[in-house]
Design a protein around this nucleic acid. Structure first.
Lengths: 159, 159
DNA sequence: CGCAGTTCGCTGCGCCACGCAGCGATTTCT
DNA sequence: AGAAATCGCTGCGTGGCGCAGCGAACTGCG
């Protein structure tokens, strides 16, 4: 922190990442509006397709930050709209596996891919090493945010 | 896209950035819970403090993606909680300038700074060049998302 | 085995953030 | 000057969400 040049870069990245995340929220909302869904629903589909295996309702609740009750309603909406299916878990019959429906999700991913072609130009600006740097930074940030959330929950309310 | 190695890196960064953004949503919500505010309110304070000058209600609406009516309610909440003050604009008396209250916002920024010390370790992992790479990527992404939102609004609904 | 204690998903219930439509006040256009 | 657009505010209805509690299923202890 003694290096003023580094400090400037730190400030720059800090404020830029805020705008980056604000931009994402707006983008996600625009996608949701376009598909006639809620931002949370799109978020959920995004997470579902990012995972290789189906998720349980509990896991969805954890990843979205909702209660299990709200997660049930969320899956209800997605199921009614035909984006996912419920499958009982053989190993644990309390659990319900939520699987994305390929044909329906294709509409969403098609939109993403369409928009992704433009995103592609962003990636093309970077070398492979640079891509790795960005990915590594995001992984670190994800880890940190998890521990920070733990700390926040443990901290007393400032009221 | 012909290079399979690049394609893998692309996929990796794509799914990792989704998790990155999901992590942010959770983090933002945890901060909001801790302060007894709504995620939108925190988002608004974040944007307000990032700008050097006070914003109008209309501008807040634009930056958060809400209607002017909802933005009025948002400012109502923040004003009632003592985080901002309303000031009539001399130049245009239709407009209302929303100014953050330094003492109240200090509590929020203090929390951010506290958490920021841990974030510092993330930045310390990177060289200056790498920091620049990440910042550049985010700037590009912000630009792209703006134009993509325009495109989405212009596209017809797939219903 | 059997019986508590825990976990998982689902369901009434009430709250409140949000979009919508319309209002008065003010500015801008012609 | 009047007409049209802009800004912020306000009833109203919708619906996502947390909360508390339910039954079903798994787990651990004696």
């Amino acid at each position: 922190m003694r290096d003023p040049n580094r400090a400037r870069l730190y400030e720059e990245l800090s404020s830029e990442s805020r705008r980056y995340l604000a931009a994402y929220v707006l983008f996600n909302q625009a996608v949701a509006d376009h598909l006639g869904l809620h931002p949370t629903d799109v978020q959920c589909l995004s997470l579902l397709t990012a995972e290789p295996e189906p998720l349980t309702v509990k896991q969805i609740a954890g990843m979205t930050g909702l209660t299990t009750g709200s997660a049930t309603r969320l899956v209800d909406r997605l199921e009614r709209a035909g984006y996912v299916t419920r499958t009982p878990d053989r190993q644990d019959r309390r659990r319900v596996l939520v699987t994305p429906v390929p044909e329906s999700v294709a509409r969403v991913t098609a939109l993403w891919d369409d928009l992704g072609q433009t995103w592609q130009t962003v990636f093309d600006d970077h070398s492979e090493d640079e891509l790795r740097v960005i990915t590594r930074h995001m992984r670190r940030a994800i880890d940190i945010s998890r521990t920070q959330i733990e700390r926040l929950r443990a901290m007393p309310r400032p009221d």
